[in-house]
């Protein structure tokens, strides 16, 4: 048995305009220096909890804007590859984004500029987290629970978890580790799920299918 029960949490996110906007790459860098840390969180992770489309080309809002509105594919590609999960904190992430933009500003002959009306609007978020009152002690119970989990729960346990844990992992894997080596393969499969290039709906299906394979298939049971 695990040391503690797994508590299913849920969350809801609300967006707040910071009022800052950038029309060119230099203004983007300048605002990035001072903007609220919540804006970095929103523009990197918040996309999953708002209108989202299949096969998004880029993985954060800065890269999307650089591509669609600055029409600078080089900087958009460089921004897109940033994995926010590898940074210990938001300030390190902020530093990396600024560094990449600085480099582009240094090497380019002109400053990429967006048309009026296509400025980048900085947005931050507030996240409300609540306990659903559901907890489980047996990983097998996830087979019933996961398909019914809200997208907020999936976001909290699979995406936001990476920010909370030093191991940069999802809550399911962290909890399964308390069972020792028993669910090792299941944990490894969950860790291999790429939380990007997808939607929360799709992520829920992927997690569900991994649990099905290992619990129902008896691989770890």
């Amino acid at each position: 048995m695990g040391e503690t029960d797994f508590k299913i949490m849920d969350c809801a996110l609300i967006a707040i305009a910071t009022g800052e906007k950038a029309q060119n790459l230099r203004e983007l860098r300048d605002h990035l220096r001072d903007t609220h840390p919540g804006a970095l969180y929103y523009h990197f992770w918040g996309g999953l909890l708002r209108p989202h489309f299949d096969d998004p080309e880029f993985q954060n809002d800065f890269a999307v804007w650089a591509s669609r509105n600055l029409h600078d594919s080089k900087i958009s590609e460089q921004l897109s590859i940033i994995d926010p999960n590898v940074f210990d904190n938001i300030e390190d992430l902020r530093h990396e984004v600024i560094e990449i933009i600085e480099q582009r500003l240094y090497e380019t002959e002109y400053i990429p500029w967006a048309k009026t009306g296509q400025e980048f609007h900085f947005i931050r978020s507030q996240i409300v987290i609540f306990d659903t009152g559901i907890s489980l002690s047996d990983p097998g119970k996830f087979l019933d629970i996961i398909p019914k989990m809200s997208l907020g729960s999936i976001f909290y346990h699979f995406i936001d978890a990476r920010r909370r844990s030093h191991e940069n992992r999802n809550d399911f894997s962290i909890w399964l580790k308390t069972f020792g080596t028993r669910y090792k393969e299941l944990r490894e499969s969950l860790d291999k799920i790429d939380p990007y290039f997808t939607t929360l709906n799709e992520l829920r299906r992927e997690i569900d299918s991994v649990f099905h394979k290992y619990i129902k298939g008896g691989a770890n049971g």
């Binding site: 809801a12 609300i14 978020s125 507030q126 409300v128 987290i129 306990d131 009152g133």
Partner: peptide
């Protein structure tokens, strides 16, 4: 609803409600 909770529980980036 999220906004009302956020307003009542302060301007923190992360608000954790107790069960």
């Amino acid at each position: 609803l999220t906004l009302v909770v956020a307003l009542l529980y302060g301007s923190k980036e992360k608000i954790e409600l107790k069960l």
